[in-house]
Write a protein that binds this DNA or RNA. Sequence first.
DNA 1: CTAGGTCACTGGTCAGACCAGTGCGCTTCC
DNA 2: GGAAGCGCACTGGTCTGACCAGTGACCTAG
Lengths: 243, 243
Amino acid sequence: MQSDRLYRRIVEQIEDALLRGELRPGQRLPSERELVAQFGASRSTIREALRVLENDGVVRSRPGDKQGPELLPFSTAALARQMTRLVRFEQITIAELISSRMIFDSAAARLAAVLHTADELAEMEAAVASMNAAMPDDLDAFGQADLAFHEAVARASRNTFVQVSDAVVHDVVLSLITDDIDQAQNQVSFMARSAEFHGRILAAIRERDGITAARLSRQLLFDFYANHVSAEQRVLLAALVDE
Amino acid sequence: MQSDRLYRRIVEQIEDALLRGELRPGQRLPSERELVAQFGASRSTIREALRVLENDGVVRSRPGDKQGPELLPFSTAALARQMTRLVRFEQITIAELISSRMIFDSAAARLAAVLHTADELAEMEAAVASMNAAMPDDLDAFGQADLAFHEAVARASRNTFVQVSDAVVHDVVLSLITDDIDQAQNQVSFMARSAEFHGRILAAIRERDGITAARLSRQLLFDFYANHVSAEQRVLLAALVDE
DNA sequence: CTAGGTCACTGGTCAGACCAGTGCGCTTCC
DNA sequence: GGAAGCGCACTGGTCTGACCAGTGACCTAG
């Protein structure tokens, strides 16, 4: 008995064709009505299969597109979505998220210190330079340079999973902590301290001293975020900071 | 203009209801035909929404089930599926996954060393005892005790995100590396070495020496998995091991 | 009180229709 | 000959209504 639902089998057939290389990202799928003919299934069934594939980030359908559904390049977007779900549904505390960032960021720094190429190092240096350039009062540019630095480090870590996790957690943390802008009074001193710290992390990476780079990364996040959580939760973060 | 597709909006409404607690796992959704009435959409549209939710592991539909689609407890199955996908399509290498486990496990050990309660420590001690008890030849019991130890450590870390990520990566790695059973010839020596290592990690946690516990955790995974990846990928793992 | 059958309901699938958009190709005009 | 404008065939999104194989509660016959 074929208990497997038909739309499911169609999904698997298309995924298998991708795995076998018979279909490639960038190519187009036949239009829904042609798929109906090819698979001998009704249009509703074909569409259910396409919705699942679309949800997994495999294809994208656009109305009126004569070329048919597009096979997308493999991306970690669906993975990031599932991780975001995890954060939302598991009721993860802000302290846990910050703690996670300390873990990911420091791991990325440690890996980047050993594995970085000259190009990647140049990217990090440019980001730190941008931070210093934005220093007097351009908080926006400063934030962007900050982000660029951490992204460059994450990329240099050669670990996609760390990279994606770090980005997801980063986004979620920022979306939950909105009052970081409120600290306008000590904005300047914060920027100065942050820039100096980033400079030290960069130096450690340049000298391929992964352990120091990791330690500094944790310290940086702790300094910045520790007072955003209750004292009782702060121990969860402090546990990651070397004495 | 409402360019957002209707089925997409229905998915979001149901997910929002879950987030707000208006719907709970274990409850049932109305039947498709009732949802048609409630949302004022056609059955095809409702079904496309249900397919997406089903694909995300949120609901499960069974034909003939009078109670309607079941709201599932939150699970990381969809997350694991996405990771497996990316590995299959060679967007993520096994080395990256092992590297991630080294990061998660060592972070969990470090946190557990500082944060563990007496109960949790007892759990870890029991697990290590079980490993030693299973030692001569019961590889199955040994593996279970191993898993129990790491789960206890992860739980003691007080970090849900690390805990879940670690578990997911652990499962995916195991499902992808099947030849670890092949090493029957040095099974005994492996078990002895592994048990000894776990004992040392446990001791470090007991003494609340997080840095040592973390270092040993990385070392353990590296020793076990390093020869499962190519030499060129091994440097990605070696970067996490202290000299 | 139980065994068996009926029947209203479920989800899975199908067929056919309409709509708003898109882009190609043709016409028309400069 | 080239550019601007118009159709028109086709796309995906949605709807309607139908049939089927299961399921489970209820009812009836024993």
